[in-house]
Design a protein around this nucleic acid. Structure first.
Lengths: 183, 183
DNA sequence: TTCGTCATGTAATGGGTTACATGATTAC
DNA sequence: GTAATCATGTAACCCATTACATGACGAA
């Protein structure tokens, strides 16, 4: 358990590298786009993670295309090793116990192209159950505190309820789509 | 700069205590309801923060109503000191430079009842500008990467765009409401 | 009497953010 | 030539989470 770096960051890096080598700076931009504005990754987090993955021989530095002989390379491109490709394939094709966590779900979905449909369905259903659970909890709590709740707090809570309801609808649509495509 | 604990947690605690003394356990439940499922606060974070606030003499332990003489009190109630009440009033009535950050905005809005309307408008506008900015950035990035974007990634990005658009509409509604009430 | 919840707290661990440092390359 | 962006990296600081420890109280 030496390095327990956030599993979803490693997953996302491996996934991005699975379609070709990239250097750190570019990787960060793609990670931001993939993971969203929350869960943004800083260099102080990215580079150490890359080194950790390299140490585990899941990625390696790929020979960079040199422009001129003797030109110092300013970029370091990383690519998957065979072990890294295998590991990513496995990560993408099973629904781990945390697959419906906020962070992990997004990463999983981003790489659904590498995930068999039954697993996609399971992850989407798991995520929906998680969101519904959260929604139910929020509703009972709101109900309990209903009396004497400040009106602005109430507005916030209504917004949150609607946000969760919307996510449930979105997931339901995705599930319908998956099933339709299967039929 | 000794303790730079997350400002919004302190703000929220002071705000909750401004309507009466509470003990830690109860405080945590209310904080969860106030701050939402993300930004949940653990005891390992709450109790040290309470001690820090106490050290700064912004809160104090209030004499608990003892059931029987000599009964060990099992709850510790906290209440605002005069300095704490003043500090909270000031926090709530000015728009600090981070008032439209994700966390701080929510706390501010929760205590809008203690905030003069012009400041409310400024915070809501600042927040809306922030969200619009994020939306614009997201859109340009999506456009740049449009070609060769995986379809699942695209679905995620569309959802994010719609989420931001929705938040902008919500803020606009709140602003309209504030202005209508003022007229 | 035992389980669940209420209630308070500590310590270690881990890892992310921030700030800093450096330098190449491109555009103006 | 100079400013902005590209690009890599380090180190310290901070602090939140986690796991653990303890015990009261009410209900079943």
């Amino acid at each position: 358990m030496g390095t327990r770096r956030s599993a979803d960051l490693e997953f996302a890096i491996l996934g991005l590298l699975s379609s070709g080598p990239l250097h750190g700076y570019e990787l960060r931009k793609r990670l931001d786009l993939l993971l969203g504005p929350l869960r943004a990754v800083s260099y102080g987090s990215l580079y150490p993670t890359l080194r950790a993955l390299q140490a585990r021989e899941l990625i390696r530095e790929s020979a960079p295309a040199r422009q001129g002989l003797g030109s110092r390379r300013s970029r370091i491109e990383y690519e998957l090793t065979d072990a890294g490709a295998d590991y990513f394939a496995e990560l993408a094709s099973v629904a781990g116990p945390d697959a419906w966590n906020d962070d992990m779900f997004v990463t999983h979905m981003a790489f659904f192209g590498h995930t068999p449909r039954p697993v996609r369905l399971r992850i989407l259903e798991g995520r929906r159950a998680r969101v519904e659970e959260r929604l139910a909890l929020l509703r009972t709590r709101i109900e309990q505190a209903e009396h004497r709740t400040d009106s602005y707090v109430l507005l916030l809570q209504q917004y949150r309820v609607e946000t969760l309801e919307r996510e449930v609808r979105w997931l339901t649509d995705l599930l319908d789509r998956e099933r339709a495509h299967a039929g």
